[in-house]
């Protein structure tokens, strides 16, 4: 399938590290993952609200979570994560799709949603992606998830395939100057 990307590139975006205070007055730190133990991510996904799962991810039990993370926390992908009080509470990822483009997804624990962390995570992820020379990014979102679609649109994503149950959007990243 040939995916269409916007002509106008989005960005530039600032890469991690970023420290900020969220809407609940919590000090949140966003960093790039560059190897290291996956256990802090496993802990986050074990605490993930099952009702917030989308299209089968994240998986629900520990062995499947580990199996899934082993395919995502890889050198060829771009991963950034948010911590509060030492624990991972958010994670965003760009996974290579084998066609020179990257699939994006973002996960935030329920207690930390709607406080500006998701938007910061996406900006940081795209900034880290720019540093790695990523140019084309796409995602799919459930079509009834209007909040997520609005967030992605604000970042610069445009709809590419609105025919199915899933709503696809894409973005072209500007090259880092």
């Amino acid at each position: 399938m040939t995916r269409i990307y916007p002509d106008t590139p989005a960005g530039p975006f600032d890469p991690p590290p970023v420290v900020f205070t969220d809407a609940e007055n919590r000090q949140i730190e966003i960093q790039t993952y560059d190897g290291g133990p996956i256990d802090p991510f496993v802990t986050m996904y074990l605490a993930f609200e099952p009702a917030d799962r989308a299209q089968g991810i994240p998986p629900t039990n520990e062995s499947r979570i580990r199996e899934w993370l082993d395919r995502i926390l890889i050198d060829d992908a771009v991963n950034v994560y948010a911590t509060y009080d030492g624990g991972v509470i958010g994670h965003a990822t760009l996974v290579p799709d084998g066609n020179d483009a990257y699939e994006l997804a973002i996960f935030v624990l329920r207690a930390y949603q709607q406080s500006g962390i998701g938007t910061r995570l996406i900006y940081c992820l795209l900034g880290a992606g720019q540093d790695r020379g990523v140019e084309r990014v796409w995602l799919s979102v459930e079509r009834w998830n209007a909040a997520a679609r609005a967030l992605y649109r604000n970042v610069g994503f445009e709809p590419t395939d609105a025919d199915g149950f899933e709503f696809e959007m894409s973005l072209r990243l500007s090259a880092r100057q």
Binding site: Q55, G56, R71, A105
Partner: peptide, 15 residues
Amino acid sequence: RRSPLGKIQLAALTE
């Protein structure tokens, strides 16, 4: 079918 990230995707036929 799964996306590179592991998301379940429904093909047009399935839908």
